[in-house]
């Protein structure tokens, strides 16, 4: 028995009913041949194929799709995926040296002096003084990048005593570069941090720092600055 190709009846009629378009692309020619071969010889003269009704699975794309892609490449914003591909999320734990962060610390010292309006020999206002409130409000709003920080107290005993220069400050984490050239991440919310500036010693509760760093300098701070104990 010779093998036969069966065409589903509806699709067969569909091809026949397609309406006039005589001009065909070169790429369509072999397809047209194939289709005409499949039709019963008596009906072959009636075949008209509209190329708009045919979508090729390979090769050609419509012009619209191409132009859209080009526009996306030019855009000035990075998507998160592109951002990650550039390696901007990764901060390897053992590549930075402690010495590299020292100029940052120096810069930070100058910034703190300007920000807090300090002069050498100034002391921290005590709780009962009127300037205490404004001062502590300023202190919470400071930028921590470049600060030399020490974990004074924590729920997690292994974190206590770690010290180093703050390199990255995110909502819930501080990344600290220790003297052993290693970057450690420390959760803010469970820790109490100690910070030293000239002759002053600050203690900051990490609970109050747990905001997005850009938001922290804008957000209005209500009464949570009193030195309460950590629960």
């Amino acid at each position: 028995m010779p093998s036969r190709i069966f065409i589903h009846s509806t699709s067969f009629f569909h091809i026949l009913n397609l309406k006039v378009n005589f001009t065909m692309d070169n790429s369509m020619a072999p397809l047209q041949e194939l289709l005409t071969d499949m039709v019963v010889p008596t009906h072959r003269s009636e075949i008209k194929i509209n190329p708009e009704h045919i979508t090729m699975l390979q090769g050609t794309k419509s012009k619209k799709q191409l132009s859209r892609k080009r526009a996306a490449n030019k855009s000035s914003t990075l998507t998160r995926r592109e951002y990650a591909r550039l390696g901007l999320h990764t901060l390897p734990t053992r590549q930075m040296l402690y010495e590299e962060a020292l100029p940052l610390h120096k810069l930070w010292k100058g910034y703190m002096r300007e920000h807090l309006g300090l002069r050498e020999g100034d002391t921290v206002p005590a709780v009962h003084e009127p300037t205490y409130d404004a001062f502590s409000r300023l202190l919470v709003k400071t930028d921590l990048h470049g600060a030399k920080i020490r974990v004074v107290e924590s729920k997690c005993p292994t974190l206590v005593g770690l010290s180093g220069i703050v390199v990255l400050d995110t909502k819930n984490m501080l990344k600290i570069l220790g003297k052993d050239n290693r970057i450690r991440s420390i959760p803010k919310s469970e820790c109490v941090f100690g910070m030293r500036l000239w002759n002053m010693e600050f203690t900051i509760f990490g609970k109050h720092l747990a905001l997005r760093p850009a938001e922290r300098s804008v957000k209005k701070i209500k009464n949570f600055i009193e030195p309460f104990e950590l629960e």
């Binding site: 390696g87 901007l88 999320h89 990764t90 901060l91 930075m96 590299e100 100029p103 940052l104 810069l107 930070w108 910034y111 300007e114 920000h115 300023l138 709003k141 400071t142 930028d143 990048h145 470049g146 390199v167 990255l168 300098s217 804008v218």
Partner: peptide, 23 residues
Amino acid sequence: ECFSRMNFLFQASMLMAGSNKTL
């Protein structure tokens, strides 16, 4: 405060540009 912070961050960014691009 915001201006001084931005100023500091800009300077820090300039400082780290040579050594660590992520930061």
